[in-house]
Each structure stands twice: as C-alpha cells, then as structure tokens.
Amino acid sequence: MWLERIQTMLPELAKALGETALMVGISLGFALVVGIPLGILLFITDRGLFFQNVFVRSILDFFVNIVRSLPFIILLVALIPLTQLLLDNTIGPTAASVSLSVAAIPFLARLVETSLREIPPGLIEAAEACGATPFRIIISALLPEALPGIIQAVTLTTISLIGFSAMAGIVGGGGVGDLAIRFGYYRYDNVVMIVTIIVLVVIVQSIQGLGNQLARRADKR
C-alpha cells in the first residue's frame, strides 16, 4: 500500500524538488555574488588591515547582524513588501527567493570573513611588502588561502538554505519541506513524511560530502 502511495506522490515530489532547487539555486547565486565580496569587505576594512575603514566596517557589521538576528520565518514575512516592490508578486518559489537571498548573503558573508580571519596576519604583511595592490592581495593571496574555508562556508550556506526553504510554503514557495508539512503534518500522511525526510537527508549528506571533498582537495596545508 505504501509503495503505491510513493508512486502516486512521485510527480508531486519531483515538482517540490524542482521548486527547492530553484529557490536554493537563486538565493545561493546571490549569496555567492554578493555575500563573498561582502565577507571580504568586512575583513579588509577591519582594524589593522590594508583597507581599514571604521565607518564602512561598522555599517556593514550592523546590517549583517540585523539580518542574522531575525529568525528566517519572520524575515520571510517582513520582506513581503520588498518582494512586491522587486517582483510585483509575492507568491511562489521566485518570490521566496528574495527573502532567502537576503538571509543567505549576510550568512555567507560572515562565514567568509571568519575563514579569512584564519590567514596569518604575517602573510598579508608579506604580500604588502611585495608591493602588491589590495586587489592583487585579495585575488592571489587571500582567496587561495581561504578557499578551503570558503568551500565549507558555501556548503553550510547551501544546507541552511535548504532548511530555510522549508518555510517558503508560507508564501506559496513550495519545495520539499512544504510538501512534508502539507501532506505529512496537515494530512497525517506518514509515507510522504518519511519519504521527504529520506530525500532531504540524502540531499544534505551528499552536499556536505561533496563540500568536504572539495575543501580537502583545496587544502594544501
């Protein structure tokens, strides 16, 4: 009986997976494009570094902390006006991606900053002593050195986004998490619940495994 149920839920599951992939993909894309530079900026504007700027640093720090201090479900609802403004629509996976991106950017930025902080200050000093420009130091010294940490940070962000996206059902975003809530919780459909749990566990484990492997390969220490 449960085998049949699985069969009938497959199209539903495939659609949900597609929605999750869309939401996570879009927001991760924004996180990479905006969050990594933001993390770098947070790091190099700090005291004692070559782009030291107390003003910029404290403003960025403030905004990152604000976003990070809100539970995602609240951020999701609070950003509905912004989503309306940007997309002229507040429903569906694309709409949910706005809030997801806003959550993911500071999340990844903070993690990137932390991995940059592990670089010995002496190495940055050595790069400066070589006569390198700030751009050169970032591209050819900081990023390669922090790469294993950044890969881990992206992995963690992806997994967190999958978790966050489960709440996207609130704004009709769909996705695997939403499927589990709608069928498994509201309709007591245990088969759907168990299947989605298994699917999510497999996805998260694979992403973590891939991330670990890439990070290990990048790590030459």
Binding site: P120, A129, S140, P144, D219
Partner: peptide
C-alpha cells in the same frame, strides 16, 4: 618602492595553497 625592497620573515609567510 616596495618592489625594490625585498623582505623575508621568521615564519617565511608563504602562500600555503600555492
């Protein structure tokens, strides 16, 4: 000017990933 002044360090300070 720094291009014309080399510097070496106690703990070498090489880029580990290169």
């Amino acid at each position: 000017l720094r291009l014309k002044i080399g510097m070496i360090f106690q703990h070498f300070q090489l880029i580990q990933s290169r």
